[in-house]
């Protein structure tokens, strides 16, 4: 299980906004965050809420297409990345993301968005365990991951992952 508490506090800190109290409710342990006006539920919704209340609105997309892509990848993060129970599920996801990033720098538009942050935090625990050989296999995804972890104030308490700049296995 991904550490949603750590992630949401990182998201809040990235957007320079206050992170409300985090709790998990119900049988499915849905993540909730308390705000001044009520409670926001679900990882994607809370992340979006934090971004919306910040000065970095651009991170939600600057045109309808980018905005839609941000939504799409936030959903993908929760439905696909976080629900990989088996090893081969995970590699299918990595392969898919790697292919998507082969001709794109970021997930939505030509700049960093919430989609990149969310996928970065979601994939971090996976990347910690990948060997250099596996990282090279997903070379576009690795290129992207390294880019995001170097963005100002994105990595925070997440550990830095090492990447090789020169492919050595092919």
């Amino acid at each position: 299980m991904a550490d949603y508490g750590k992630e949401l506090s990182a998201v809040a800190s990235y957007f320079n906004v206050k992170c409300g109290q985090i709790s998990f409710t119900g049988n499915e342990k849905v993540v909730c965050m308390k705000t001044q006006t009520g409670t926001v539920k679900g990882l994607a919704t809370i992340s979006r809420h934090l971004a919306q209340n910040s000065s970095k609105q651009k991170c939600l997309g600057t045109c309808p297409l980018d905005q839609a892509l941000v939504s799409q990848w936030l959903e993908y993060r929760v439905l696909q990345v976080d629900r990989c129970s088996r090893e081969d599920d995970l590699h299918r996801v990595l392969k898919e993301l790697n292919g998507y990033l082969s001709d794109r720098t970021y997930f939505a538009g030509p700049y960093l968005t919430l989609a990149d942050l969310s996928l970065y935090y979601g994939l971090h625990r996976t990347f910690v365990k990948l060997s250099f050989q596996e990282k090279e296999k997903y070379i576009h995804l690795s290129r992207w991951f390294n880019q995001i972890q170097h963005e100002n104030n994105a990595r925070q308490k997440f550990s830095a992952i090492q990447f090789l700049k020169t492919p050595i296995y092919q």
Binding site: T105, I139, S142, R143, W144, N146, F163, L164, P167
Partner: peptide, 10 residues
């Protein structure tokens, strides 16, 4: 550029 997003640094 296979392993880099931009030419120098990030």
């Amino acid at each position: 550029l296979l392993t880099r997003t931009y030419l120098v640094g990030e």
